[in-house]
Amino acid sequence: MAKRIDVSGLTAYYGKTKAIEDISMTVEPRSVTAFIGPSGCGKSTFLRTLNRMHEVIPHATVSGTVLLDDENLYGPDVDPVAVRRTIGMVFQRPNPFPTMSIYDNVAAGLKLNGIRRRGELDALVEKSLRSANLWNEVKDRLNKPGAGLSGGQQQRLCIARAIAVEPEVLLMDEPCSALDPISTLAIEDLISELKERFTIVIVTHNMQQAARVSDRTAFFNLAAVGQPGRLIEIDATERIFSNPTVQATEDYISGRFG
């Protein structure tokens, strides 16, 4: 588990509109890579191309290659469903399945992978909830609906759901933007623990968060509104925040624009 991602020459479209252009980067295994940049620069779009969720949107297309340990995700015989089992995703707004209990939410992905024996499921659900630091809060109400939890708990439930299937990579699209500072702290602590086991990519608008949790940071920007977003630079987080190579990165981080 925990694999490396190599992206080269990736361009993504919505219909005829080019959203991101010619992005190449490497995401290291067992580390946290943060994407920062102004709104509309294509961070989320790029993230979604990494597990083929981009093409779920009608008329959205991708060109270029994404290698997961030398295997091209956009190869001719690749099944997007298998890709998404390998590369999990956590969304901006917590989205537990409203018809399912807390237990069933976590077990949703497991049942699909053919794990149906109650004992095995119980163990994996508990393990995932413990990994998401949620077990102690919900262990007495596993059969209650997931929608009854607080926003922060719901988001950790979604993380538990995503890691229950033991993906190689975990993509997080602004996972804390709908949460209060205490829940945010809980999630950030969780990210630091999870990076021991998973490769993590996180999109964030919060620069302090990127500085706190990530090992490497990528800065995205767009030349002008209506232009496609581009990767400006990617480097070790300390370097991006202290001594970036590109002036635009420094301007963005110091708050001079964007």
Binding site: N51, M53, R84, R85, T86, F91, F97, L112, A162, V165
Partner: peptide, 24 residues
């Protein structure tokens, strides 16, 4: 978002419709 959450778990589309969309 619910459809996407399910698809992102690697659930096939027909199963997403059957297990997530229809029950909701």
């Amino acid at each position: 978002e619910l459809r996407e959450a399910s698809l992102a778990l690697g659930v096939p589309k027909w199963r997403t419709i059957l297990k997530v969309v229809l029950p909701t």
